[in-house]
């Protein structure tokens, strides 16, 4: 059944390229099947399915869920296949080097993929976060938050944050990439026994 899924990749191959073990990749396949069949049962995760799982709402636009989807969709064909899902999730593994997490976060925040996080992009993200959280701040306050952050992060003072400045900034504020690590990815089989149970059933089939 797994082989009928478009873009299915051998768990052993995926395990060899990521910090996951073969049985963990199999457990992730159970999760993938669930996510990829929540709206359209075609073995691929569509944007709406991803967003539904992340923010429990398929209609409300969420800039950040959109950005994560775009980065997971490595082939940029509008869907996340199993291999893309596992490789992208591996960034969030506790054993993945921090430099990869810092790089991923930079790409997330570089909304227009110019190689820089620009002031306008940061403001757009702050406004999106406020909107998502039903928080209202005056434009003055938003401008102040963005300005202060830029003064702090843009050490070269050229009005944009490059990857080097970003690395220095994260080194000073490590909490900024806390959400780039999912502790339980280290032992998915313990954290998600139901997925393992299912994958064992499949193994014996």
């Amino acid at each position: 059944r797994a082989r009928q899924i478009p873009g299915y990749e051998d768990p052993a191959t995926l395990a060899s390229e990521t910090p996951f073990t073969v049985s963990e990749v199999e457990a992730l396949f159970e999760l993938f099947k669930k996510l990829s069949s929540s709206i359209i049962d075609d073995g691929l995760i569509h944007r709406e399915e991803f967003q539904l799982a992340l923010i429990r709402n398929r209609n409300k636009k969420n800039l950040f869920a959109d950005r994560v989807f775009d980065l997971f969709d490595v082939k940029r064909n509008g869907v996340i296949a199993f291999g893309e899902f596992v490789r992208s999730l591996s960034i969030f593994h506790p054993n993945t080097p921090e430099v990869d997490k810092i790089d991923f976060a930079f790409k997330l925040y570089d909304l227009r993929q110019t190689g820089f996080i620009e002031r306008e992009e940061l403001k757009e993200m702050v406004l999106a976060l406020l909107n998502e959280s039903d928080l209202v701040l005056s434009d003055d306050v938003v401008e102040t938050i963005v300005d202060k952050t830029f003064v702090d992060a843009d050490s070269k003072g050229d009005g944009k944050i490059d990857t080097e400045e970003w690395k220095e900034f994260v080194a000073r504020y490590p909490s900024l990439i806390k959400n780039m690590t999912l502790p339980y990815l280290k032992d998915i089989t313990l954290a998600f026994p139901s997925f393992v149970m299912n994958s064992e059933v499949e193994d014996s089939e």
Binding site: A53, L54, A65, A128, L129, T144, F169
Partner: peptide, 25 residues
């Protein structure tokens, strides 16, 4: 004086960036 938050710290709290939500039932 109000504490001025780090904008990146603020946006890192987005639900859309909390991948653990993918694992919730």
């Amino acid at each position: 004086r109000p504490v001025i938050m780090n904008a990146f710290e603020l946006i890192s709290t987005s639900q859309g960036l909390n991948l653990s939500n993918l694992f919730e039932k």
